[in-house]
């Protein structure tokens, strides 16, 4: 069983495997052969992109063709009449409404929508939203490659910051919303703005998105998603208890760290480095977007989707 409060990072690391214990030795093949053995290279990525495009496509078509399948936007929506609410947006609204006295008027649909989202993402893993739903992610995931290319060509330098920065923004924007009694963040929210622009048509506000997009390409990789976006941070908090996760099995790992290279949140895969793992089995944490890129690339099948607690049944 897994322990919520134990941090495996603080345990003493296990000794690195000897050559005999490496997966390619066990299979009796050369490392290079084993390493090139990638099948279904983009299986999960394709599935994920399909889901992302389907969800956002449903939003667009629901409005364009009056389909009434998935209405609204990612700030708040209705899936076939059933409400869904963005949790950070809802949190700010609750805060403001308590001050303004509007709180009792918030509709039952609001609470149902918020409850559904919180429940759903606490089951499937919070930041799953980022890589499986968020339309900005789809753009950024592809722009990331351009950024990596520029770094590789030494045209630009990589700039990284502390991951905890987003909690500063998370608290900051919440305080700001309550202090100014306005949903300040919604005017800057990448999720909301891109979603609305897709559904209801683009506007001048996209200038803001483009500015940050350029900043992300030429200065700091995924700056908004990693260090600012409080929506993602909220989903990360919700997903802390999620049983759906990526499972890492040390005995199948060949220390190639390919997974960390493709990972959208590489700090989550801290245990794949040689001699870093502290346990035979590791699970990714709440920042993991469950994107499946590492699952796709792993030659040794050491990384897989799992549902904690249900592993023994399968």
């Amino acid at each position: 069983m897994f322990n919520l409060f134990e941090n495996p990072k603080n345990l003493p690391p296990l000794p690195a495997k000897s050559k005999e214990e490496m997966p390619h030795s066990k299979l009796g093949i050369k490392y290079k052969e084993w390493h090139n053995n990638h099948e279904n290279k983009h299986k999960w990525r394709n599935k994920r992109w399909a889901v992302l495009l389907l969800i956002n496509g449903l939003f667009i078509l629901s409005f364009a063709l009056d389909l009434s399948m998935l209405e609204g936007s990612l700030s708040g929506s209705r899936l076939m009449g059933f409400y869904l609410m963005d949790p950070y947006n809802a949190l700010q609204t609750i805060g403001i409404s308590l001050i303004q006295g509007h709180f009792p008027n918030l509709t039952m649909n609001f609470w149902i929508g918020l409850g559904t989202i919180v429940l759903f993402y606490s089951l499937v893993g919070g930041r799953t939203f980022c890589s499986w739903i968020c339309p900005y992610h789809f753009i950024a995931e592809n722009l990331e490659k351009l950024h990596d290319y520029l770094v590789k060509k030494k045209k630009i330098k990589e700039h990284t910051y502390n991951q905890s920065l987003r909690y500063v923004f998370w608290v900051g924007f919440l305080i700001l919303a309550i202090a100014t009694q306005q949903l300040v963040f919604e005017d800057l929210n990448f999720v909301g703005i891109t979603s609305r622009a897709l559904i209801y048509g683009p506007g001048l506000i996209l200038i803001w998105i483009i500015v940050i997009m350029i900043f992300e390409i030429v200065y700091s990789k995924r700056f908004w998603c990693r260090y600012v976006c409080p929506v993602g941070a909220t989903y990360g908090m919700i997903g802390k208890v999620s049983p759906v996760s990526i499972k890492f099995e040390l005995d199948k790992c060949g220390y190639c760290t390919d997974c960390q290279d493709v990972c959208l949140v590489p700090h989550e895969l801290w245990f794949v480095k040689k001699g870093a793992a502290t346990k035979e089995v590791h699970y990714t944490g709440s920042d993991c977007t469950r994107c499946g890129l590492c699952v796709d690339i792993c030659a040794g099948d050491a990384l897989n989707y799992t549902i904690k607690g249900l592993e023994k049944l399968t």
Partner: peptide, 22 residues
């Protein structure tokens, strides 16, 4: 301050009288 800008009112209007402000 309380409008979450979800656009549900825009969607439901059969004659599309409601628009979201840029």
């Amino acid at each position: 301050s309380e409008c979450i800008k979800c656009g549900l009112c825009v969607q439901i209007c059969p004659i599309q009288a409601i628009k979201l402000a840029d």
